[in-house]
């Protein structure tokens, strides 16, 4: 107890009860960027546009998903021994018209989601050291949604 809660990466998401990813928006073209782009708008032809900080939609739908059956190599930091598989989802945000990757929260398996499943953004501990817990954004199936169908493994 008493560990300090820190983001695993600076200024990519807000830390609160309803966390949101932080992006930037090219004000002239209307294009969003995540991770936030600060140098220049990458929308071709809009180099002189202003990039404004925006908080992205915190819900979306699954574009696709997979899992990690083997422990990823360094710099991934293992959180359990033996390794426990985790799910990774690519989630489509309607307003921003983009797909963003994230791990799914602990306990979600590939049988719990399918393409189109509504998801929301939450924060969960990615790894800890003696003094701090480092949190990251994760995707969580929205509880009130119709249970996922299909997409059985076999």
């Amino acid at each position: 107890m008493g560990k300090t809660r820190l983001p695993a990466v600076e200024d990519w998401f807000t830390i609160d009860d309803e966390p949101r990813l932080i992006g930037t928006r090219c004000t002239q073209s209307g294009t969003y960027f995540f991770p936030p782009e600060h140098t220049m708008s990458r929308a071709p032809g809009f180099a002189d546009s202003t990039l404004e900080r925006v908080e992205l939609s915190r819900t979306g739908t699954v574009w696709s998903y997979t899992n990690a059956g083997y422990k990823p190599p360094d710099p991934y930091i293992p959180v359990s021994d033996p390794f426990e598989p985790f799910v990774i989802a690519a989630v489509h945000l309607e307003a921003e018209q983009m797909v963003i990757l994230g791990q799914c929260v602990a306990g979600v398996t590939v049988d719990d989601i399918s393409v189109g499943t509504p998801m929301e953004l939450v924060l969960e501990t990615l790894y800890e050291d003696d003094d701090n817990e480092f949190v990251v954004w994760k995707w969580k199936p929205i509880a009130t949604a119709t249970p996922a169908t299909g997409s059985e493994n076999n």
Partner: peptide, 22 residues
Amino acid sequence: RFRLLGATNPTYFGLYARRRMD
């Protein structure tokens, strides 16, 4: 992507394959 997501190259291959199935 390795540090924050644990996303390996096969992660991306898996996303494409699952989407083909669905």
